[in-house]
Design a binder for these strands. Structure first.
Length: 601
RNA sequence: GGGGGUGUAGCUCAAUUGGUUAGAGCAUCGGAUUGUCGAUCCGAAGGUUGCGGGUUCGAGCCCCGUCACCCUCGCCA
């Protein structure tokens, strides 16, 4: 079937191997035919080696070699030959040598591939996903997979060295309400009952702490039946951690150490510690998001108290308790109407009512004229006329503006204004190229609110219902729940949420108060979480933990902008696998056995 | 569910205001070629313009519907 087994890979031969007889196995990467003289580049995941078929050494092979097609799997026996100086290929590590073939075995032929297995050519992602096994043959994808493997190894190495135990938890669990939609698996033996695929190992890892296992970690798959994004898949992988007898800083220290280790070991990048810490409130106020990109400045400023109320857009919003806030686009005063319109279209798309633009210019008129602030600074734009001198002075100061800058203002309810400006800030980051590729700016966001109000007015947990409130709020939990801060923390890198965690509740009474605040009846919580509440009564230690999105870690470390490129077989945005066609149908017999009937379809 | 973008040869793209037989590069196939490494040269083949309707003398282009992929809002405790 196949006789010539490799003695070396396609990436390891060097000048020092000259004269050695070797066998290489691999895929035909390219063929260059000169009639009597034929070159083949043989590729495997370790590299590429040039094989020579010459009439001098292997006249009988030349014709056979001339028929080799791309992506055929072949085995070649030959002698390593140091190349003449003028034929060395400096671009590849094996470029100093070539293998002078004496024997050729065609192991497997290949049809013409639907796209070329090279880096040079752009291929639609759809095509790559349909033939993922070919896409994964490309060196960049192999680099991604390799890097991911190294990351996992570095994480395990670090966690193990810190004394953490690698422990598994069930994927098939009991459905628990709240949070992400679960995938359900019908039970064959119990009609009408279902397992749920775990959306995270949360409860089990807490129970490990009750068991006294003290330091747990796992690289675990999580399943969530929610809509997809560039950085979200139905199933994804987390580095999951839980520790006993710890406070917030202990958990943050461990994960910081782990991340720094990974970045150094895999990326060769020294990340300074400790990571900056910013509160949720500050992050929302200055960056308009709970996952700030700190690679560039452009903080949001507030003009509410100094905004001209005669300008109705501002006046009516302030009247209603809203805010006027803005961003300074340095050097953008020369932007055309078309360019600023684009910004307005964008902010309207994310919920803004409008965008007020003001240009800071050198005045044409003398100081003292309408709107002219000083000899060298004047506001221009349709709203400029509403700015009396003190107000103009205020906005210039708060915006830190100078002539040539463009000021972008949004007036709205506080949360809306913040999120709109937060989005606009990122748009400007990309349009203006404000960040240098290859920079990594980590930060912690802390002091999240305990609760949030949902669309229907109901109170929900911001993090999850097992998160402990900060001690100073224990007495006012019921009185002012919306003011309660949680012992929760998120790790953010370059504006992407890498992970989050919290110190947990370890007392039954506190846990029950939280459940009650969330509107869950005692009967309901007993049914769903009884085992957890029981566990808390048998000696639960204080504990806390965190989970890091491994796919996002790999994506960011590699400088990519979607996690599909670090996942071997991802789903499309519409949650299907283009290669296998999953999800697929099953037979009536299977459905019957599972006591399931399909309706409407 | 909402908004935006894309869809033309195997792949990546082009095609003036709606107007001749829809072009190019790469890949493929045939031929030439003894030092290439993105080989080169000569030649050939390759099309339901995502799909379905409509407007028009005439549609890749305009209109309606639909499908797929990507980005995004909602959603993701």
């Amino acid at each position: 079937m196949w006789k010539l087994k490799r003695t070396q890979t396609c990436g390891e031969l060097r000048a020092e191997h000259a004269g050695k007889s070797v066998v290489l196995n691999g895929w035909v990467d390219a063929r260059r035919n000169f009639g009597n003289l034929i070159f083949i580049d043989l590729r495997d995941r370790y590299g590429r080696t040039q094989v020579l078929f010459s009439p001098d050494r292997a006249a009988a092979l030349v014709e056979q070699a001339s028929k080799l097609g791309k992506e055929w799997v072949v085995a070649v026996r030959g002698v390593v030959r140091k190349r003449d100086a003028d034929t060395v290929n400096a671009k590849i590590p094996t470029g100093e040598i070539e293998v002078d073939a004496v024997d050729l075995e065609i192991v497997n032929e290949a049809k013409t591939t639907p796209f070329e297995v090279t880096e040079r050519i752009n291929v639609a992602e759809e095509m790559r996903l349909q033939h993922r096994y070919l896409d994964l043959r490309r060196p960049t994808m192999q680099r991604n997979i390799l890097t991911r493997s190294k990351i996992v190894h570095a994480m395990r190495e670090h966690m193990d060295a810190q004394g953490f135990l690698d422990i598994e938890t069930p994927y098939m669990v009991k459905f628990t309400p709240g949070g992400a939609r679960n995938f359900l698996c019908p039970s064959r033996l119990y009609p009408g009952r279902f397992f749920a695929l775990a959306e995270s190992p949360q409860i089990f890892k807490q129970l490990f702490m009750v068991s006294g296992l003290d330091k747990y970690y796992q690289i675990a798959r999580c399943f969530r039946d929610e809509d997809l994004r560039a950085d979200r898949q139905l199933e994804f992988t987390q580095l999951d951690i839980e520790m006993s007898f710890v406070q917030r800083e202990d958990v943050m220290n461990v994960i910081e150490g782990c991340v720094v280790h990974v970045w150094k070991k895999v990326g060769g990048v020294e990340v300074p510690r400790p990571f900056p810490v910013i509160t949720y409130e500050e992050s929302e106020r200055l960056y308009g998001t709970d996952k700030p990109d700190l690679r560039f400045g452009m903080k949001i400023w507030d003009l509410t108290d100094a905004a001209p109320r005669e300008f109705k857009v501002f006046g009516s919003v302030i009247e209603a308790g809203g805010v006027v806030r803005g961003l300074t686009a340095t050097g953008c005063a020369s932007w055309s109407r078309k360019q600023t319109d684009e910004l307005e279209t964008y902010v309207k798309g994310i919920g803004a009512k409008g965008l007020v633009t003001l240009k800071v210019e050198q005045p044409q008129a003398p100081p003292g004229s309408l709107g002219v602030l000083s000899a060298d600074c004047v506001l221009a734009g349709s709203a400029a006329k509403f700015f009396a001198p003190p107000q103009a002075k205020a906005i210039i100061e708060r915006a830190g503006a100078k002539p040539g800058d463009l000021l972008l203002l949004v007036a709205d309810a506080e949360e809306k204004a913040a999120s709109v400006l937060g989005g606009l800030r990122l748009l400007l980051r990309d349009k203006l190229g404000l960040v240098k590729p290859g920079t990594f700016q980590f930060c912690w966001v802390v002091d999240f609110p305990m609760f949030e109000v949902g669309e229907d007015g109901s109170v929900g947990a911001k993090h999850h219902p097992f998160t402990s409130p900060k001690d100073e709020f224990l007495d006012v939990l019921e009185k002012e729940p919306m003011k309660v801060k949680a012992k929760a923390y998120d790790l953010v890198l370059n504006g992407v949420e890498l992970g989050g965690g919290s110190i947990r509740i370890h007392r039954r009474d506190v846990q029950q108060r939280i459940f009650k605040l969330l509107g869950l009846t005692e009967e309901y919580t007993r049914d769903r979480f009884g085992f957890l509440l029981d566990a808390f009564e048998y000696g639960a230690p204080p504990h806390g933990g965190i989970a890091l999105g491994l796919d996002r870690v790999a994506m960011l470390l590699l400088g990519l902008d979607n996690i599909r490129d670090v996942i071997t077989f991802p789903k499309t945005q519409s949650t299907v696998c283009l290669m296998t066609g999953a999800p697929g149908t099953v037979t009536e017999k299977q459905l019957k056995e599972l006591h399931v009937r399909v309706v409407d379809g």
